[in-house]
Design a protein around this nucleic acid. Structure first.
Length: 112
DNA sequence: CGTGTGACACGTA
DNA sequence: TTACGTGCCACAC
């Protein structure tokens, strides 16, 4: 049988990982994939796009720290509420970005 | 089975 | 900083 009869299971792991990310921290799509040891960033992104509505989706972000287009306001509100390290836009025309070096979570327990 | 697309990542310009 | 090309994997057509 083809090794793909459990998309739900993989999705469940991705969602589970997303929920495991502590407040004020984030993980990139690639990190989640690597953390799970399977799939890739695009697969994780697909799972989040389909079933991410039930988990803290704002804690799973792109590697460049950009916020989700179309959900910037939502994400920003959550980041501020959780105290997630942000890079304030220097110019008034730029959008907010995450401070990846500080916000990135590698799966280890409490950072500090 | 080829082609395009996507909540990606990375190098280069 | 943004834009483009390339690699990646899964899925829709």
């Amino acid at each position: 049988m083809t090794p793909m009869d459990q998309p739900t299971e993989y999705a469940e792991r991705v969602l589970e990982t997303a929920e495991a990310i502590p407040e004020g921290r984030v993980m990139t799509y690639g990190d989640v994939a690597e953390y799970l040891g399977q799939g890739g960033p695009r697969q994780v992104g697909r799972v989040m796009a389909l079933f991410g509505g039930g988990v803290p989706w704002w804690r799973v972000v792109r590697a460049d720290g950009r916020l989700l287009p179309g959900h910037e306001t939502e994400a920003l509100a959550n980041y501020r509420a959780e105290g997630t390290p942000l890079r304030t836009p220097a110019t008034d025309r730029e959008t907010y970005r995450l401070d990846m070096p500080r916000a990135r979570w590698d799966g280890e327990p409490a950072p500090d």
